[in-house]
Design a protein around this nucleic acid. Sequence first.
DNA 1: TTGTATGCGTTATCAA
DNA 2: TTGATAACGCATACAA
Lengths: 356, 356
Amino acid sequence: MTRKRVSIPTPAPEPTPAPSIPRKPTMQDVANVAGVSLKTVSRVVNNEPNVESATAARVQAAIQEMGFRRNEIARSLRPGQTTSTLGLVTEDISNPFYSSLARGIEEVARGRGCLVIAGSSEEDALREKELVNTLLQRSVDGLLVVPAAGDHTYLNAQRISEPVVFMDRPPEGIQADMVLLDNRGGAYQAVEHLIARGHSRIAFVDGHPYVHTGLERMNGYRQALAAANITYDRSLVVVGCHDPQQAEQATLNLLKLPNPPTAIFATNNRLSIGVLKGLTSSGKWLDLAGFDDFELADMLPFEVTVVRYDTIQMGRVAAEMLFARLDGDTSPPQTRIIEVEVVVRGPGRVGLPSGY
Amino acid sequence: MTRKRVSIPTPAPEPTPAPSIPRKPTMQDVANVAGVSLKTVSRVVNNEPNVESATAARVQAAIQEMGFRRNEIARSLRPGQTTSTLGLVTEDISNPFYSSLARGIEEVARGRGCLVIAGSSEEDALREKELVNTLLQRSVDGLLVVPAAGDHTYLNAQRISEPVVFMDRPPEGIQADMVLLDNRGGAYQAVEHLIARGHSRIAFVDGHPYVHTGLERMNGYRQALAAANITYDRSLVVVGCHDPQQAEQATLNLLKLPNPPTAIFATNNRLSIGVLKGLTSSGKWLDLAGFDDFELADMLPFEVTVVRYDTIQMGRVAAEMLFARLDGDTSPPQTRIIEVEVVVRGPGRVGLPSGY
DNA sequence: TTGTATGCGTTATCAA
DNA sequence: TTGATAACGCATACAA
């Protein structure tokens, strides 16, 4: 039988004398104090019609007095109810790229009354899978995932009914909604820019060689070279730089080549920083272009060309795609591309590029 | 009566012919398929003893086959159960300071099997209050809050039983656990450093004049001056700079003073950047010290002294304080101070300071 | 070793 | 306009 808490204002002593632990008030508690039924309280809380205003006022007073808060956990247990919660899986939330994504997602989610549960995968496929599982166990309404390298077919096994939107990189092995940067176009434009400045020996400094973003940026690089009838020179390509230190060393090595480059394209901002350090320490200066903008670029003692984009907007777009699915969109998986722009940063540049 | 789903392997048609919407499998569904009772499935899922290995294997097989995932929402509804979820309220998750806090919190939370629900208050007291309320409605086990300006006694009204740890700034009107930076000490050391370099006219560029961190940094500034018998000069103090542009303008104004400063202390990194721009555009160079480290500082064409600290560690400490409360610590509210260090950044500096 | 009954706090159904 | 009652999916106490 359902527990009925005492309906007199002062609680009668429980059978077990343990009154010192104050439970959170429930609708039943409010109902007892207000002298109505549980259902009436529910009606008031949910602004349902058919409650006499005097009754509603009495209930409201009790709610205020007792500090009642509806238990969303219990509410969402009912069939057909949602948790109004989205799950977010990134590599590392302290990375500004991912935290900006989170920001955009949160903005859109807030507009829909949703909160975001976030977790970091550490770029580990197993950890990502566990995280997705954990989030699904908590009945998130949908998932936003920056996929780690590795197979994602586990999401496909028609076991998961919640919509998923991937960000930044496509998942392996499944068709799904995703939001990507225009990696190829950005690299193309940046290299084209270097070519327009008269360079024909342009080095390419990359991180992990098999990551989608890196491959696409490489494609853009090669296409820009080809469009200008510049022969692709394998000796100017360095891959596998995983931190600024390695990019710095790679830069020094490039400078020592018999026929060194006259410009460098770096595929992300951490590598750009390493290249900058290498150039600085060697005392030479080559034209540099890099993917990703970075803070303080205008304060540098030399010009740097960067490929920039609106990461927060990328998060917004991803969240909007997810909500479209939650709203019933059953069209085939879609890919949205976020535009990028090439901007020259460096001394004498006043202010920030438009839209920043 | 409890719904009992059919116990034959092939589901019999429901009374209502709506088989096209696949429900998520429940323990009861698994039990039906495995031919055991719900409780036995529960035992297997929770690794309880007293299950014959053959039975357990049958249940495991059914779980795999059906893609069963325990519903954590339902589990946490039972009395005495927690949600293993922490609530995090910051001003803006895309701000690297807050996302680093989030990262440290997440690390510790993960070690305890907890996830983090994050929300941004936009530095708005009302929004913060709503966010706290929303998080409590979702039965978070505890809260981590960067308090917006405004009264926080609403948390005190003995209505909330969950522990709260404040970060970066103390809440107003209540006693609670908190983790703060050594704002005063950092400012003191930075100004002391400028004094040691021979400066006695040191400007102070600040943001909002009544924020705790700003006040403490001002205290450190004044104490360092006093310790060196330097008279506090009101004309060198600029407050109310809310963005780099205003700090840039403030710098230009300072340079135009009849008796201008020879060094500047900026109370946060956004203001430092503004000051840097002001100095650059004016073509003059003063010694600069600032609170908060910033990326690329070593690439600048001049030296900058920064007050740096480990934000991720700050998040870890906050989370550990929260878990201590969740573990039953009922000692009086505590304040933990995160140490800071003064580091000179700029040309010729090789690598990063230790611990970075 | 396994199963039955009950209730967590809410919403939905249906009756009063 | 109100209220009694039955789920939701799980875990807990207790029985078999």
